[in-house]
């Protein structure tokens, strides 16, 4: 009915948060890592705002595709009030669905993103540690 509106709203909030965080972030943190060809290269770590960008894209992209599905099923229309449930007096059912399915969608996408951030941090940490260990050997 209108479940995609919850992740869409979260996308707006996180996009705004990304812009604020980006403006306050420090300069690039450079580290040395060993590339797959064995050469050592100085690279900059991904900032938190870049990682928050992943969440924005997942939420916004997913919401757009879900909005299309709602248009397909006639639940969203291109004229006021845009949501068929509001027009037919099913607003309470729609809000209940937003509170259950919509919130679950937003929570799941955010949880998956948090997992990705943890894994990416671990990969970054491993790459730096490996390089330090190789440097110590040499």
């Amino acid at each position: 009915m209108g479940c995609f509106l919850v992740p869409a709203a979260e996308a707006i909030i996180t996009t705004t948060a990304t812009k604020i965080i980006k403006s306050k972030e420090k300069k690039d943190e450079n580290v040395n890592i060993t590339l797959s060809d064995g050469s050592v290269s100085e690279v900059s770590r991904l900032k938190f705002s870049d990682k928050l960008g992943w969440l924005n894209k997942m939420l916004a992209g997913g919401s757009v595709l879900l909005a299309f599905e709602h248009v397909w099923h006639g639940e969203v229309v291109p004229f006021f009030p845009f949501l068929t449930a509001v027009e037919t007096g099913e607003t309470s059912e729609m809000l209940a669905e937003m509170g259950s399915a919509g919130v679950s969608m937003a929570v799941l996408v955010t949880a998956v993103w948090a997992g990705m951030v943890i894994v990416s941090n671990a990969i970054e940490k491993r790459a730096v540690t490996e390089n330090k260990a190789e440097g110590a050997k040499a």
């Binding site: 997942m58 992209g61 997913g62 595709l65 679950s104 969608m105 799941l108």
Partner: peptide, 21 residues
């Protein structure tokens, strides 16, 4: 092509929740 991954994975997760319900 990164944007395609984000869009499709985002939508897949959302439809997965729909499927569970």
């Amino acid at each position: 092509t990164g944007i395609l991954c984000w869009m499709y994975w985002g939508a897949s997760l959302m439809w997965f929740v729909d499927a569970v319900f």
